[in-house]
Design a binder for these strands. Structure first.
Lengths: 170, 170
DNA sequence: ATGATTAATGTTATAACGTAACATAAATAA
DNA sequence: TTATTTATGTTACGTTATAACATTAATCAT
């Protein structure tokens, strides 16, 4: 008998330790991307992969034009359109999220599971991480039903200090 | 014995009926703005008032450059800076909110009470309204404490269909 | 394989959103 | 009335994002 599929992301994401081995995050993300694309019958082309790598260069959200600069460090002349197109692709497939409050993009650590992304954004170290949105989504649903509002997309971005930075500043 | 001050906005805001008497909303907003500014020792100058009026021209969020166009319909040459400065002022005093997901601004119907704004945004009629964020904020707080994250600002914007538009489309 | 079709990328130009920096004018305080 | 602060004017530019059309590369059907 198969186990019941879970409705929520497997683990609440923690803010990464400042000195963690980030190469593993990136490697994981790329492997996941390959899997996801294969499953979706989508092509992870050169430029899409490079954009994803740039996004995963850190846990801080990165702007489209910073990604562009990264891609062109070798003197290339990739245009903004190319980056935005790659980002659109990556978002469609759940590999990247956009943070509306920062006009910036961040890699999704839970790309293989469908979910609504809720973010915690640290104003000190600039990193951002997905929070477990289960309780919040429940609260939103409840409130919405009182309004008769039918939700389609939740944008939830909490800005503040992550545990590491808060400890530092104490 | 005085009644205990309420922590939450007095009433949950409903989506305005499509055919409501909007002139009253605007009039209320302007009166409130005067009161608030007086209380804060701030000046509601000509341009600030005109920007506020433009914002209150409807319940749909409006972009800064649309406000600008509105102000210049008479052939004036007000510059973008002036609009952004007025918007900054109005936001500081809680008279206007910014919707990060739309790069747009909307009048605050609860300007006299301090609160965090949570929005419902209808993709059909384009109007937006503040929801009662009490339950959501509670859920956010709870989740955050598990992360050790210290919140400073909550951006919550739910996109979907308001009750009126949902009924229409049914 | 070959041509038809779709998908992806290249290229140019421009729209939309937002701010820096410095000059001027208007209100308030001394 | 002069000094000071507050608000606005003005110019220029930075940043973010997309439209429109051309070209190239992959996939499909025969």
């Amino acid at each position: 008998m198969a186990t019941r599929p879970r409705k929520t992301p497997s683990k609440p994401q923690a803010f990464p330790h400042p000195h963690h081995d980030h190469s593993r995050c990136t490697a994981n993300a790329l492997r996941t991307a390959e899997t996801v694309c294969e499953k979706h019958g989508a092509r992870l082309t050169e430029i899409r992969r490079r954009v994803l790598e740039a996004v995963w260069a850190s846990h801080a959200p990165i702007g489209a034009y910073d990604i562009l600069a990264e891609l062109n460090t070798d003197g290339g002349k990739i245009a903004p359109m190319a980056v935005y197109r790659a980002l659109d692709f990556l978002m469609e497939h759940g590999l990247v999220h956009r943070l509306a409050s920062l006009n910036a993009f961040i890699g999704c650590a839970l790309a293989s599971e469908r979910h609504t992304a809720h973010f915690l954004i640290c104003r000190s170290c600039k990193s951002a991480t997905e929070m477990d949105g289960t309780a919040v989504t429940r609260a939103v649903k409840k409130t919405l039903s009182e309004h008769g509002f039918v939700p389609e997309n939740e944008i939830i971005e909490i800005q503040g200090l992550c545990a590491h930075c808060h400890k530092e500043s104490a």
